[in-house]
Design a protein around this nucleic acid. Structure first.
Lengths: 213, 213
DNA sequence: CGCATGTTTGAATCCACATTAGAAGAACGG
DNA sequence: CCGTTCTTCTAATGTGGATTCAAACATGCG
């Protein structure tokens, strides 16, 4: 078993920091995220993960007790990555940002994480519906936490009168999140810059939800 | 092997029409759609499908040469169901419907098919990214055909000046489709009527894309 | 009724994985 | 350098699940 040791959370998360063992672990985890996001929960074979991680399949068991634990961690990390990046981005906004500006910020952050930063997040999103019951339950907790962030954003905007109150807030929120979560299915870095997608999305959402033109 | 016979396409698709053998086939196919939409491509076991269809697993092989063929058919049917329902709904609109009205119609039709009418369509949507390469290729053809319908809708609306030309049409289109395709992940008949979701979606999209208020 | 063809099944086969076990390789402190 | 501990591998093991097969069951037609 890997020695329990305080691994400095390596701000960049790059697989070149920390001791070798920790790096292998990261490599496997990242490989699992990649495969999971493409092949789905049941379709993710340890052999494939291992191949991507440049390791033999049994190496996985040095770090995780089972395949399921590995995949579950991918999902957890994916959820946290999204939540944390969005929250951090919001925190970085100027104090006087309007409620709509904050929504713009959240849109940008969500798209960044899902499209560029993290296959983990993509793996978590795409597989939510396919998780085994017990894992799904834990997943729902994280999902609710994230939903709360957005609920707050929307409520604030409504309260500030910046956002139309004449549509069901939950539905509107989910429509937006749907548009965001679906982006990985069609966006391709070759066809257009991430910045453009972000701008378009902000534009459309703003018009779709805001009170003024 | 099942006798090749002209099966009247049973307008309603209910499993109570046609000869018994054909009904069994339908039952298995529908069961496969249900399981596929929940468990993903690799997670769909014939035993589960068979159980839902109230049949033993080997019965599948009387109708399809392999599990893969069965699942592939589910995807094809799902795509066609969506395309056909949307096209039919558009055709049913009054001649003088505006371009934006037609988009409203397409939104309603797409949501209906995905949320109520067909687990097939849901199975096709959720698994697109997980299909084995060869099947995925065929799938892309159908997907393109459907995308063309929407491209047409959007182009018409832009041409008619009813839709803002200041955003990337492709991105806008995909954002909308994303919002629609994501609906099954959160919509629950208990929490609100389908009609409400449709109305909200139409409202938000209209505002998000149209030129006038 | 009774055969012929269509349909479904239970039991057997077979293979692709996850997982285990034990040995071989690194790294590292003395 | 040398032993000890950490890390990874190769070679089994075991199981789940797709597929095959031949027998049982239905159905319809003479």
């Amino acid at each position: 078993m890997p020695r329990e040791q305080t691994v400095r959370p390596s701000a960049d998360g790059s697989p070149t920091s920390g001791r070798k063992s920790a790096r292998t672990r990261e490599r496997i985890l990242a490989a699992a995220a990649q495969v999971l996001s493409r092949k789905g929960w049941a379709g993710t074979r340890l052999v494939d993960v291992a191949e991507v991680a440049e390791v033999q399949a049994p190496a996985v068991y040095y770090y995780w007790p089972s395949r399921e634990d590995l995949l579950a961690e991918v999902v957890t990390v994916g959820q946290q990555a999204t939540l944390e990046h969005v929250v951090a981005s919001l925190a970085a906004l100027p104090e006087d940002a309007s409620a709509l500006d904050r929504i713009d910020g959240a849109i940008a952050a969500h798209l960044e994480v899902v499209l560029r930063r993290s296959e983990f997040s993509l793996a978590a999103i795409r597989n939510a519906a396919q998780l085994p019951a017990d894992i799904r339950e834990r997943q729902l907790v994280g999902q609710r936490a994230y939903a709360d962030v957005w609920r707050g954003l929307v409520e604030d905007a409504v309260a500030a009168g910046e956002l139309t109150a004449d549509v069901d807030a939950r539905a509107a929120r989910m429509l937006v999140l749907g548009a965001l979560n679906w982006a990985p299915e069609w966006w391709n870095p070759e066809r257009g810059s991430l910045e453009d997608v972000v701008a378009t999305t902000q534009h459309v959402v703003r018009r779709g939800l805001s009170t003024r033109r």
